[in-house]
């Protein structure tokens, strides 16, 4: 098939539009929610210097979320609809970004950052040649900031892994986080209600992902140049050997056969809540209530803008 022209958002078919929105929402939601969690470390990080560094990363991620949400401005969406007044069940971020941090669990913070940053790098790479010029144009800016995040995370991981307590805490965090990290590569459910119009046999009220066409469309339309499976395998091929080099045991690493770098994400490796399918942990609802608190308390109807719309 020929690659559709995404340069004119007015002239997209319903399917093209849905594919683009599905791709962007998950990118934006991941960045936004991860940033929310990072800010929890502000004024609580191990040292003043590390406090500043993580605050920087939080702001970077938030800035990236802002750039991605803005892409949907072409489709008539505003921050109000996309963030402050969206039903929490309509967010499509992976559950790894929504889990709360235990007080003082810096091992979780740096490990989670590493797992997400590697996935982010791979995803961004697969967007460099996106058929949507707006997406392709925004990738480079974001990539430059992400590389600092990953190096920062790795420096900390290597430091912590050397100490006995650090190593133990990293292992515990890995056991807890790893299944959730795998949900990054799970297919997205369409927005609630959209299934109703289709002849899909699982289309009841549950917004579970059905391996629907939208994921195939994202790749077929050239919006992203790698499939979720490919991204997941690449990710495993990077993180598993690295974590093992720190003497950490990776639970259900997905390694198959004798091949050194053959990996596969299987259903057994995944947690019950996958985020992408609209099923979230309870922590997400609390987080949502907290970040929308002022907006609701003051009866606002429009989130405040400070910066100009990105070009």
């Amino acid at each position: 098939m020929t690659t559709p022209d995404f340069s004119d958002p007015e002239n997209l078919t319903a399917r093209e539009r849905q594919a683009l929105e599905c791709l962007i929402k998950r990118l934006a939601d991941d960045e936004f929610v991860l940033a929310e969690r990072y800010t929890e470390w502000q004024v609580r990080a191990p040292t003043l210097e590390s406090d500043l560094a993580l605050a920087n990363n939080a702001q970077d991620e938030l800035g990236h979320a802002r750039l991605w949400y803005d892409v949907l401005g072409d489709h008539g969406y505003t921050e109000r609809e996309l963030v402050y007044e969206r039903d929490p069940a309509e967010f499509r971020h992976s559950t790894i970004v929504e889990l709360p941090f235990e007080e003082g669990d810096w091992a979780d913070a740096v490990l989670r950052s590493y797992l997400c940053d590697v996935a982010e790098e791979l995803r961004l790479e697969a967007l460099e040649a996106s058929s949507s010029p707006k997406i392709a144009n925004r990738v480079a800016k974001i990539q430059q900031e992400e590389s600092y995040h990953r190096e920062h995370a790795q420096n900390w991981l290597e430091r912590l892994a050397e100490g006995e307590e650090g190593h133990e805490r990293l292992q515990a965090a890995l056991d807890r986080l790893f299944p959730h990290a795998l949900t990054i590569f799970e297919p997205c459910a369409p927005p609630h209600g959209e299934n109703a119009n289709k002849t899909n046999e699982t289309s009841d009220d549950e917004p579970r992902a059905t391996g629907s066409d939208v994921e195939a469309d994202i790749v077929d339309f050239g919006l992203r140049t790698a499939t979720l499976e490919e991204l997941g395998e690449e990710w495993l091929a990077i993180v598993v050997p690295y974590l093992e080099s720190l003497d950490l045991d990776v639970p259900e690493s997905g390694q198959t056969g004798d091949g050194e770098f053959e990996f596969e994400v299987t259903q057994e490796m995944l947690p019950d809540e996958r985020g992408r399918d609209g099923i979230h942990t309870d922590a997400w609802v609390d987080l949502y209530d907290d970040f929308t608190h002022t907006y609701r308390e003051l009866g606002r109807s429009e989130p405040t803008k400070i910066m100009e719309t990105p070009e």
Partner: peptide, 18 residues
């Protein structure tokens, strides 16, 4: 090695944005 001051819009951290 690092994009000092970032590559995305950080105008929110300057007095001139207000």
């Amino acid at each position: 090695e690092v994009a000092f001051g970032g590559t995305t819009d950080k105008s929110y951290r300057w007095a001139t944005a207000y």
